[in-house]
Amino acid sequence: MTASKAQKSPADARRMSVSGLKAAFNILDKWGCTAEQAQAILRLPRATYYKYRNDPESARLDRDQLTRISYLLNMHQALRIVFENPENVYGFMRKRNHNPYFHGRAPLDVIESGDFAALYETFRRIDTLRSGLW
C-alpha cells in the first residue's frame, strides 16, 4: 500500500471526527459533566458547543480538539477494561482520588480546567490502570 492510500480521505477524516465528537459528548454526559465543564475540556466556546450538540455534522474541529476527544475516548476505553460495572466506569471520574497527582481531587475536577497538560496527565494515569502500574 502506498503512503497516499494509507492516508484518510477528507470525507473519512470528517466522519471520524463527527463520530468522535458524538461519542465524547455521550461520555461526558455519562460522567455527569456540566455544559461548562464539557466546553472547557473540549475547548469549545459556549455558542459553538451548543451548535455542535444540536448539529454534530456541522463540527469543524482543529487538531487540539481532536486530540482532546481522543484522550477522552481512550480514558473511557481504559475504564471499561478496568471496571466491570457501569457505576465504576462512569463514576470513576467523579470519585476523589488520593494518588499523588490528584491530591484528593476527582479526575474530572482536574480536567475541567481545560488545561491540555491536565487532560494528558489524567489520561496517562487512567491508562496505566489497565496495566496495573498505578
Rank of each mutant, 00 (worst) to 15 (best):
M1E: 09
M1K: 08
M1D: 10
M1C: 06
T2W: 02
T2K: 06
A3K: 09
A3S: 08
A3I: 13
A3Q: 11
A3V: 09
S4H: 09
S4I: 12
S4G: 00
S4C: 04
K5Y: 05
K5C: 02
K5A: 07
A6E: 13
A6W: 06
A6V: 12
A6Q: 13
A6K: 15
Q7V: 08
Q7D: 04
K8W: 09
K8G: 06
K8I: 08
S9V: 10
S9F: 03
S9I: 12
P10Y: 06
P10R: 15
A11G: 10
A11P: 06
A11V: 15
A11R: 15
D12P: 03
D12S: 14
A13H: 05
A13Y: 01
A13L: 11
R14D: 01
R14A: 07
M16V: 07
M16E: 13
M16P: 00
M16S: 09
S17N: 05
S17E: 10
V18N: 02
V18G: 01
V18M: 04
V18A: 04
S19Y: 09
S19C: 11
S19R: 14
G20N: 14
L21N: 01
L21K: 07
L21M: 06
L21V: 03
L21W: 05
L21Q: 03
K22D: 00
K22A: 08
K22L: 13
A23N: 12
A23Y: 09
A23I: 09
A24K: 13
A24R: 13
A24T: 11
A24W: 11
A24H: 11
F25R: 14
F25K: 13
F25H: 11
F25E: 10
N26C: 13
N26F: 15
N26T: 15
I27H: 14
I27N: 14
I27E: 12
I27P: 07
I27V: 15
I27A: 14
I27W: 14
D29T: 02
D29H: 06
D29P: 00
K30N: 14
K30A: 06
K30Q: 12
K30R: 15
K30M: 08
K30S: 06
W31L: 04
W31V: 00
G32M: 08
G32Q: 08
G32I: 05
G32C: 08
C33V: 06
T34P: 04
T34R: 13
A35V: 07
A35G: 01
A35K: 10
A35M: 02
E36H: 02
E36T: 02
E36C: 00
Q37P: 10
Q37W: 11
Q37A: 14
Q37Y: 12
A38Q: 12
A38T: 11
A38N: 06
Q39D: 00
Q39Y: 03
Q39P: 01
Q39C: 04
Q39R: 10
A40P: 00
I41E: 01
I41M: 02
L42Y: 11
L42H: 08
R43I: 01
R43G: 00
R43Q: 04
L44H: 09
L44P: 03
L44K: 10
P45L: 05
P45S: 10
R46C: 01
R46S: 05
R46G: 00
A47M: 09
A47E: 12
A47K: 13
A47G: 02
